[in-house]
Simulated scan of single mutants.
Amino acid sequence: MDEKRVAVVTGASSGIGRAIAARFARQGVRVLATGRDGRRLADLAAESDQAPGAVRPFPGDVTTPGHARELLAAAAAEWEAASIFVACAGHGLPGTVLGSDPTRWERLIEVNVLAVLHQLRDAAAEFVRQAELDGGRRVRDIVVIGSTVGRQVSAANPVYGSTKFAVHSLVEALRQEVCAHNVRVTLIEPGFVRSGFQDAAGYDSAWFEAVAAESGPLLTPEDVASVVEFAVGRPTHVHLDDIRLRPTRQKV
Rank of each mutant, 00 (worst) to 15 (best):
3 E>Q: 09
3 E>V: 00
5 R>E: 07
6 V>E: 03
8 V>D: 07
9 V>L: 05
14 S>Y: 01
15 G>C: 01
23 R>C: 04
23 R>Y: 00
26 R>T: 12
27 Q>L: 10
28 G>C: 02
31 V>C: 09
37 D>Q: 07
37 D>H: 09
37 D>M: 08
39 R>T: 13
42 A>Q: 11
43 D>I: 11
45 A>H: 02
46 A>C: 06
46 A>G: 06
49 D>A: 15
51 A>W: 02
55 V>F: 08
56 R>T: 14
56 R>S: 14
58 F>Y: 14
58 F>A: 13
59 P>H: 09
64 T>A: 14
71 L>C: 10
74 A>C: 11
74 A>I: 09
74 A>L: 08
75 A>W: 05
85 F>M: 13
89 A>V: 12
91 H>T: 15
97 V>P: 13
97 V>R: 14
99 G>L: 07
107 R>P: 02
112 N>G: 06
113 V>L: 13
117 L>A: 13
118 H>N: 08
119 Q>R: 03
127 F>V: 01
127 F>N: 02
129 R>L: 01
133 L>V: 13
135 G>W: 01
136 G>W: 00
140 R>S: 01
143 V>P: 01
145 I>R: 05
145 I>W: 05
145 I>S: 02
149 V>Q: 04
149 V>S: 09
150 G>Y: 00
152 Q>C: 00
154 S>I: 04
154 S>K: 13
155 A>G: 11
158 P>M: 09
158 P>D: 09
161 G>R: 06
163 T>F: 00
163 T>S: 12
164 K>I: 00
165 F>Q: 05
171 V>I: 15
174 L>G: 05
176 Q>D: 14
176 Q>V: 11
181 H>K: 15
183 V>D: 04
184 R>Q: 13
185 V>T: 06
186 T>Y: 05
187 L>P: 02
191 G>L: 10
197 F>I: 06
198 Q>V: 04
199 D>M: 08
200 A>F: 03
201 A>L: 07
201 A>W: 05
206 A>Y: 06
209 E>I: 04
210 A>R: 15
214 E>Y: 04
217 P>C: 08
217 P>K: 09
228 V>W: 03
230 F>M: 12
236 T>E: 13
242 D>M: 06
247 P>L: 07
252 V>F: 09
